[in-house]
């Protein structure tokens, strides 16, 4: 009797514990209020336009208002350091850009680390491509490389900033072809392209969507992607020319560290649903973006892969 009393007590305790434990793990309904979508670049830029495109669809699938907010500064670093310091309750998410979130923490203290950000999804990429003006003497990537070998450091390549995708692409290109270029950094894509069209630099590593706009004036020598880019179907990839460079700017969405799994899943589903919408993919393509639909796990794996590649290159810059 005594024993059964105790066992009853234990059973009650255990089941209570289980219940409360279950209760704790129980998913709180999400979202119950408006969700903030933080854009870390200027309004009107690619990240902002994508957020604005997604906003109405997100509101529909989440059933709550989505507020697009801006935290601009430090090439995105300011917004991302705010992201990793905010509550992991799913009510603040931020657009993320690769390679920015990998390269910035490698360069210096920026207030966040790459692995602090939980990637939810990646939904678009702009492969980089090497381009010259139509009037330029270089017709193919081989001619370009040959010319660079004749006069090292004489040919200038314009890009956006240092420790950026454009800079890294130039360095990888130099390393793989044994050439040396004069890399001229600009403060963003707009001044970069303006200087390029004005002939102030000989070539650029540009984002595909920027280059598509000027396809009448420029000649794209090679695209740094796995496959040919639909905007320039005639242009070979670097890989086809035997140079193993795949470089792109990828855009996605991230959450603060320790965000519960069910929130990540819920947002992942919402974003992937939009990313897989054929009408939206068609729009993206028209603007020069490659549509993507990578979920949380796949995005994380991709970030880890790229981190490995960048580690060695950054070592080269820093020494």
């Amino acid at each position: 009797m005594c024993r059964s009393k105790w066992s009853l007590f234990i059973i009650v305790c255990v089941s209570l514990a289980l219940l409360t434990g279950y209760g704790l793990a129980q998913e709180k309904p999400y979202p119950t209020k408006s969700v903030t979508y933080l854009v870390t670049f200027d309004p009107g830029g690619q990240s902002d336009r994508e957020a604005r495109r997604q906003q109405p669809f997100l509101e529909k699938s989440l059933g709550q208002k989505v507020i697009v907010d801006y935290k601009v500064g430090g090439g995105g670093a300011l917004g991302w350091s705010e992201l990793v310091r905010s509550q992991p309750d799913g009510y603040l998410m931020a657009g993320i850009n690769i390679p920015h979130i990998i390269l910035q923490p490698m360069q210096q203290q920026t207030g966040y680390t790459t692995d602090q950000i939980i990637p939810v999804a990646l939904f678009q990429r702009t492969p980089l491509a090497l381009a010259v003006l139509k009037t330029s003497p270089y017709k193919t990537i081989q001619e370009f490389i040959a010319a660079a070998k004749v006069k090292p450091s004489d040919i200038s390549i314009g890009g956006s900033g240092t420790f950026s995708g454009h800079h890294v692409a130039t360095l990888r290109f130099q390393k793989m072809t044994g050439t040396k270029f004069n890399y001229v950094p600009f403060t963003g894509a707009a001044p970069q392209i303006t200087a390029f069209l004005g002939g102030h630099v000989n070539a650029v590593f540009g984002n595909s969507d920027d280059l598509v706009k000027y396809s009448g004036d420029i000649r794209v020598l090679a695209v740094a992607d796995e496959n040919r880019f639909f905007g320039f179907p005639e242009t070979p990839t670097f890989k086809e020319s035997g140079i193993d460079i795949v470089e792109s700017i990828d855009r996605g969405i991230g959450l603060p560290p320790k965000t519960p799994d069910y929130i990540v899943k819920k947002l992942e589903a919402a974003f992937l649903q939009i990313a897989k919408d054929p009408a939206i993919q068609e729009q993206m393509k028209k603007e020069g973006f490659v549509p993507l639909a990578l979920g949380s796990q796949a995005s994380r794996a991709y970030i880890e892969k790229m981190t490995g590649i960048y580690k060695d290159i950054v070592k080269d810059i820093k020494k």
């Binding site: 210096q108 420790f163 800079h167 890399y183």
Partner: peptide
Amino acid sequence: DEGAGGHL
């Protein structure tokens, strides 16, 4: 920090 070197 002296950054990436070169003329910058």
